[in-house]
């Protein structure tokens, strides 16, 4: 059916272009063709020339590309592994939090994700927060509440730099989103410290070699060694296991809505697909009488000559 319509359309288009051809002089046409040709050739030449020189940095400059890992939450409809988030929080708390803050996560955020209400409350109460001043205006302290944010290791940026030889440990709340390569990069970085830097690499004092870090010289030393934490669920705390867990936890920090987002996405896909199919059906149904319609012209017969 469409082919019939198509041919009809083609016919009318042909007749249109025939009439248009008469209006464009052959000289104008030649100029247009020439301009198109020159532009095309120039573009091809420029692209070819550009392809002859590689402007990419060396692997040492931009850091080794992290391999792609098969995260439990990688798939379109895969949720976070919440047991891993729970272990990862333990790693953050016992290892990373010595230097890195986690400013945007409050204790209440952990409730219903990796910890129970009572556990989160108990952890919050281990820290002291500023309270409102008393009647005499003296500052007071109070134990933490669920609504408080997880405290950082340093009072301010200057203190953090002073304690780390001038380098500022970045806040980890959004670090997975903030680094090119995301989870894969951070996992590769954490597990990628070689025992010795390769020959010829000169490191400034206080810095360490890591091939995945841009420039290769990173202030953070290797921190994850086998069995530095003891998991409560009995998972063997190998350094790669800890790196996987802490990266899962940090990914949750960056994107706590991931589970809900994927579930909503599944719903949207199902609903919109069915709406599309039903819309097609309804369109066909509504158009059927119009498409069937045929106008017939029966020319009047010429009067008979007697």
């Amino acid at each position: 059916m469409f082919s019939r319509f198509g041919s009809a359309f083609k016919n009318s288009a042909r007749s249109f272009s025939t009439s248009a051809k008469a209006e464009i002089s052959s000289n104008t046409k030649r100029v247009i063709n020439g301009a198109v040709g020159v532009a095309g050739l120039t573009a091809a030449f420029v692209l070819y020339e550009d392809s002859q020189t590689a402007k990419a940095m060396t692997a040492a400059e931009h850091g080794l590309h992290a391999p792609e890992y098969d995260w439990p939450h990688k798939g379109m409809f895969d949720s976070y592994d919440h047991a891993s988030i729970r272990r990862g929080f333990q790693v953050y708390r016992e290892v990373c939090s010595a230097c890195h803050s986690l400013d945007r996560i409050a204790w209440r955020n952990l409730v219903g994700v990796s910890h129970t209400n009572a556990e989160a409350k108990a952890m919050a109460e281990e820290y002291e927060y500023d309270d409102e001043p008393d009647d005499q205006g003296n500052p007071r302290k109070r134990p933490g509440k669920l609504t408080d944010y997880i405290p950082g290791p340093y009072a301010n940026e200057e203190a953090a730099r002073a304690a780390n030889g001038g380098a500022l440990p970045p806040d980890l709340s959004l670090v997975v989103k903030a680094r090119h390569g995301g989870c894969d990069y951070i996992f590769a970085l954490l597990t990628g410290y070689p025992d010795d830097p390769p020959a010829g690499v000169v490191l400034a004092p206080g810095s360490n070699y890591n091939p995945y870090f841009p420039g290769g010289s990173i202030a953070m030393a290797r921190t994850l060694f086998d069995d530095i934490v003891e998991y409560e669920d009995g998972t063997p705390a190998s350094s790669s296991q800890m790196a996987k867990d802490v990266v899962t936890f940090l990914d949750w920090c960056s994107e706590p809505e991931l589970d809900d987002r994927k579930k909503l996405g599944a719903k949207a896909i199902i609903i919109l697909t069915s709406l599309y199919l039903m819309a097609v059906w309804t369109k066909k149904f509504k158009w059927a009488p119009i498409k069937h319609r045929k106008i017939v012209f029966n020319p009047p017969k010429p009067p008979k000559k007697n």
């Binding site: 609903i271 709406l275 039903m278 059906w281």
Partner: peptide, 13 residues
């Protein structure tokens, strides 16, 4: 039924 289901899913969406 088809037209009704179309309306129903549209309304829910």
């Amino acid at each position: 039924l088809m037209v009704g289901a179309y309306g129903l899913v549209s309304a829910a969406a």
